[in-house]
Amino acid sequence: MTGHPQSSMPGQKISIQASQLGKTYEHPAGSVVALRDLSFQVHAGEFFCVLGPSGCGKSTLLHLLSGLESPSTGAVTIKPTSVGMVFQEHALFPWMTLERNLSFILDQQAPAQQAANRQLARRWLQKVGLEKFQHAYPHQVSGGMRQRAAVARSFAVQPALLLMDEPFVHLDYQTRMQLQQMLLTLWQEVGCSVVFVTHDIEEAVLLADRLMIMSRHPGTAKTVLQNDLPRPRHLLDLKTNARFIDLVEQSIGVIRDELQAVD
């Protein structure tokens, strides 16, 4: 699909329009092409997964979408101005309590209503099951709880677009499943667009409406799969679902040659 952006379905609003994105890093030892000629769209309210091995430029892609870095070539247009982001880990400020981690960001966006912001922060911590830990510092709670708080923070800013950079990669299997389910519930409630980056094929199939599968050297899109698994999804039941297994195998099929080629 490279080079020709997918035509959007009629009536669907576009949240992200990326055309021929490229990113090259200049190093003294030579330049590294992290992304090349990447075009895609994300619809408003869509759960869009970017799936690929490490080194395929998917984190770079998120940095381009969040504005942390700018593309070397091509352009990206993002409709919503309010963006939330969840990083891999350690993105909470260690010197703030969980509640303050949320309310501090909210205070930045609405300085006039600090009391209301604190209320909102507490409500979001409650939604992710952390109401008892609102006054704890990040180092006092487990890694899973820190990521819950980070997810709560990204939702609390009422984002129209949520960017997630392998947010559950450092969690154990059980905790990861809990958080995946929690994320789906919150997302369906809020209805924002999500770009979720992961290298975990099952995770991508569990969560996504569509998944863009990337290859590396240089990072670019191989294909975009439509995921028609019904919602709401219950991840425990889904793992034995025939359609789910089919989609996972399709995804593996896309990267099969690459799996065999490397190492």
Partner: peptide, 11 residues
């Protein structure tokens, strides 16, 4: 990452 969070949330 703290710088990045600050930038993403326009602190």
């Amino acid at each position: 990452i703290h710088h990045q969070v600050a930038r993403v949330y326009r602190i």
